[in-house]
Simulated assay, not measured.
Amino acid sequence: MTSCFVCAKHRDPDLLPVGADDLVVVTHVSPDSPGREGGPVYLGHLVVEPRRHAPELADLTDLEAAAVGTWAARASRALRDAGAEHVYAAVIGHHVNHLHQRLIPRYPGTPREYWWPPRMDEWPRARLGGHEEVSRVVHDLRARLERGGR
């Protein structure tokens, strides 16, 4: 699909995934994502996406669904190993018509009133960053996934 943001992202030769296989790509939310205007993003905010254009969970094949689940679990473990005390997982699908499961870490010390993703990046001490910080997080998580095996 040429008009799909996620499909276009997967074709980008400069894409640096956290992890990937023939069915799934795991990436970090980018400051260049639609609606971000290049501003800082919440560090560790990952998206697990099937390579094939599939709008919703029900559109996945059983193999794709299993791969999405496996990558979500592996990436969540990597986030936890990197310091998250909890990882939220959500499939909402309001803005992008390509399935993407969000994995959003909650770090130690986050006050309870900022728990749950809509508020986490509003905390004045939230872990936010631009391209350089995102790149460091991606490289760290990739290394953790490689050490953790498949």
Rank of each mutant, 00 (worst) to 15 (best):
residue 113 E to T: 11
residue 150 R to N: 13
residue 62 D to A: 14
residue 150 R to L: 13
residue 15 L to D: 04
residue 29 V to C: 06
residue 16 L to T: 15
residue 63 L to R: 15
residue 68 V to P: 06
residue 42 Y to L: 13
residue 109 G to F: 02
residue 19 G to T: 06
residue 126 A to G: 04
residue 101 Q to K: 11
residue 107 Y to K: 07
residue 76 S to H: 08
residue 51 R to D: 06
residue 148 G to K: 08
residue 48 V to Y: 00
residue 150 R to P: 13
residue 23 L to Q: 13
residue 57 L to F: 15
residue 53 H to C: 03
residue 80 R to K: 14
residue 32 D to P: 01
residue 2 T to H: 12
residue 58 A to T: 15
residue 99 L to F: 04
residue 15 L to N: 04
residue 78 A to Q: 05
residue 3 S to C: 11
residue 85 E to K: 10
residue 51 R to G: 08
residue 25 V to Y: 03
residue 125 R to F: 11
residue 120 M to S: 11
residue 108 P to Q: 03
residue 72 A to N: 06
residue 28 H to C: 03
residue 27 T to G: 02
residue 108 P to G: 06
residue 142 R to P: 09
residue 71 W to R: 07
residue 135 S to T: 14
residue 72 A to G: 10
residue 62 D to L: 15
residue 113 E to P: 09
residue 75 A to I: 01
residue 22 D to C: 10
residue 5 F to N: 09
residue 5 F to A: 12
residue 133 E to D: 11
residue 144 R to M: 10
residue 128 L to H: 02
residue 121 D to N: 11
residue 14 D to I: 05
residue 50 P to S: 05
residue 106 R to N: 07
residue 28 H to A: 08
residue 123 W to C: 09
residue 38 G to F: 00
residue 57 L to T: 14
residue 14 D to R: 14
residue 41 V to P: 00
residue 85 E to Y: 07
residue 61 T to P: 11
residue 102 R to V: 09
residue 100 H to N: 02
residue 42 Y to W: 08
residue 77 R to P: 07
residue 80 R to W: 12
residue 41 V to D: 00
residue 12 D to V: 02
residue 125 R to Y: 10
residue 43 L to K: 00
residue 34 P to L: 02
residue 1 M to T: 15
residue 1 M to E: 13
residue 132 E to Q: 12
residue 94 H to N: 13
residue 106 R to F: 03
residue 35 G to T: 03
residue 148 G to R: 12
residue 78 A to M: 05
residue 34 P to G: 02
residue 146 E to V: 15
residue 63 L to C: 11
residue 77 R to F: 05
residue 59 D to M: 07
residue 149 G to M: 08
residue 134 V to H: 01
residue 142 R to Q: 15
residue 143 A to F: 12
residue 142 R to C: 05
residue 146 E to A: 15
residue 113 E to Q: 12
residue 111 P to I: 02
residue 108 P to V: 05
residue 72 A to R: 05
